[in-house]
Design a protein around this nucleic acid. Structure first.
Lengths: 113, 113
DNA sequence: GATTTTTCCCTTGACAATCTAGGTATGACT
DNA sequence: AGTCATACCTAGATTGTCAAGGGAAAAATC
């Protein structure tokens, strides 16, 4: 029984997931990806080719800050944390997302007009 | 108070919304768009530049059939209906979508690991 | 009766985000 | 010595959506 998936769906939600994952604690890129995968019940898969460009543009936009350090396993790693702007961005994206999936739900559940 | 929105989110769900809207009854393109907008509580907006290309590629893939006819208002209009393949596609996309938003919810609600 | 709005179709080109597929390097395990 | 997991990165292809245009006919407004 293969698990169907759709990459397109991640469009527009990846940044929110990253912001959320960084909310409260600093993490390095690889750790962010693993964390999202685990906390989604292994339903979501984060490709490195999507992750790193996303981290870079989010830092460019001022939502993230980074510093080089050492991971738990002793390897060099870049740790990201939320800025104030990132915190605000997270709140807004969660709001938009919630409204979006509720709207989609109304359509596919065919609620009485 | 402006209504924030995010176009990116529609990525990958538009086809499902179209399939759902055609499930049960035949409709023309313009009517599909209006129907989705209304049944989403005017939360979703369907651009014609997204709609028509989507209809065409879905017909190419064999999910939809079309015929020319006359709309309720007497204008010429192209009516689309679901094929069997389209019906199956709808079921699959709804399944994927449901799993997807549940996975995202788990991440952003930070459920206990 | 002239003008504007609404309905209905379409296409082209830009854009933006993701994925594929490649690369580098180190440490741990076998 | 070789493989796996960790950890970073980029170039290019792909794809779907959007913006912005266009046409035509009926209905509504002036």
């Amino acid at each position: 029984m293969s698990k169907p998936s759709k990459k397109d769906l991640l469009h527009g939600t990846l940044e929110m997931l990253i912001l959320e994952t960084l909310s409260g604690e600093e993490r390095h890129g690889y750790g962010i990806a693993r964390r999202i995968e685990r906390s989604s019940g292994d339903e979501l898969q984060i490709e490195e080719g999507s992750l790193y460009p996303a981290l870079h543009r989010m830092e460019r936009r001022g939502w993230l800050e980074s510093r080089w350090g050492r991971s738990e396993s002793g390897r060099r790693a870049k740790f990201y944390s939320l800025t104030d702007a990132g915190q605000r961005q997270l709140a807004e994206e969660k709001d938009i997302w919630t409204r979006f999936w509720k709207a989609v739900s109304r359509v596919i559940e065919n609620e009485p007009a």
